[in-house]
């Protein structure tokens, strides 16, 4: 590999890592603070992508799709938390697993009923449709760079909210000791609703932003869920910072791994996860 190729591959890693972070941050938030394993996280990502498809078909603009899609996802999150998950906090984890797994099936069927089983594409907005040439025959799509910028901005935003605001303080406190936070008179119920809705919205936003990059197809969330669980486990459950570095690590491994050791490309990510867990059983930042 020459230097230019290595640099482009680094760019690929960072770009993929940032997108992974966006999607897994919601999962780790919900997981870490509420103790809820939201298996439907991938399905929410898929719904986001389909919303992007539907809204772009309808309005012709991805910007509008984002503006309409996020509130829809927030509402979905609030409804699910208030009406379904709320009654399960006192129960065993298995109940939540069952519930969120059931949600996958329901969301998949809703997708099938509303949009059918065809594969769809979402056009890249005209403004971002160009590409920057990097070498004599390789260029980089501007949209990919734009998505990276958005993800980076969100990462910084999330860091700021969690480290510098009162809400962030309660979130951090809630993550480390929920009972104590409750006994200090903080309304955990509202906090949980906010967090779950935010988690769903992050998954949805990930889906919306990925839609033009990827294709929109049934079951697209399943793979995403698995890779997100890997990211969350590597980073340490509940840690946003961990999710960030976990995602970066997976980005690097899944970009360079297959090129350097093609025969291990399918298992590379899981090998890395196993190695991390051997050294740090609770993840990097737990």
């Amino acid at each position: 590999m020459d230097l230019a190729t290595i640099l482009i591959q680094l760019l690929n890693s960072v770009q993929y890592g940032l997108l992974l972070f966006l999607i897994s941050s919601g999962l780790t938030l919900v997981f870490g603070i509420m103790g809820v394993i939201n298996l439907a996280h991938g399905a929410m990502y898929m719904i986001g992508a389909y919303l992007a498809y539907a809204f772009v078909e309808w309005t012709g603009s991805l910007g509008v799709a984002i503006l309409l899609g996020i509130p829809v996802m927030l509402i979905v999150g609030i409804v699910i938390e208030r009406f379904l998950i709320d009654s399960l906090y006192s129960r065993d984890h298995l109940f939540q697993v069952l519930l969120t797994f059931g949600l996958i099936l329901i969301l998949n069927d809703i997708q099938s009923i509303l949009w059918g089983n065809d594969t769809h594409g979402v056009p890249i907005p005209d403004m971002l449709n160009g590409s920057i040439s990097l070498t004599d025959n390789m260029s980089y799509p501007v949209y990919r760079l734009a998505v990276s910028v958005v993800c980076l901005a969100l990462a910084i935003g999330m860091y700021w909210v969690i480290q510098k605001t009162r809400l962030g303080m309660t979130i951090r406190a809630g993550a480390s000791n929920r009972e104590m936070v409750e006994s200090l008179g903080i309304n955990v119920r509202t906090l949980f609703t906010i967090i779950f809705a935010a988690g769903v919205a992050l998954a949805g936003l990930g889906g919306i932003l990925s839609a033009p990059l990827s294709s929109v197809y049934p079951g697209m969330g399943d793979n995403v869920l698995i890779i997100c669980l890997v990211v969350v486990v590597i980073g340490g459950i509940g840690s946003i910072k961990g999710a960030f570095w976990g995602a970066m690590m997976i980005g690097l491994v899944s970009t360079f791994g297959p090129v350097l050791i093609p025969s291990l490309s399918s298992v590379m990510v899981y090998l890395v996860m196993a190695l991390v867990l051997l050294v740090k059983p609770r993840g990097l930042f737990a």
């Binding site: 590999m1 020459d2 230019a4 190729t5 482009i8 591959q9 690929n12 890693s13 770009q15 993929y16 070498t135 025959n137 390789m138 990919r144 990827s214 294709s215 793979n223 899944s254 970009t255 360079f256 297959p258 090129v259 093609p262 490309s265 399918s266």
Partner: peptide
């Protein structure tokens, strides 16, 4: 080049193809 099934992240492979010309 064989890529893991059913993953759809191709950017790394495209970069490799570009360098192979």
């Amino acid at each position: 080049i064989l890529t893991p099934f059913p993953k759809v992240e191709f950017q790394a492979y495209l970069t490799e193809i570009a360098s192979l010309k």
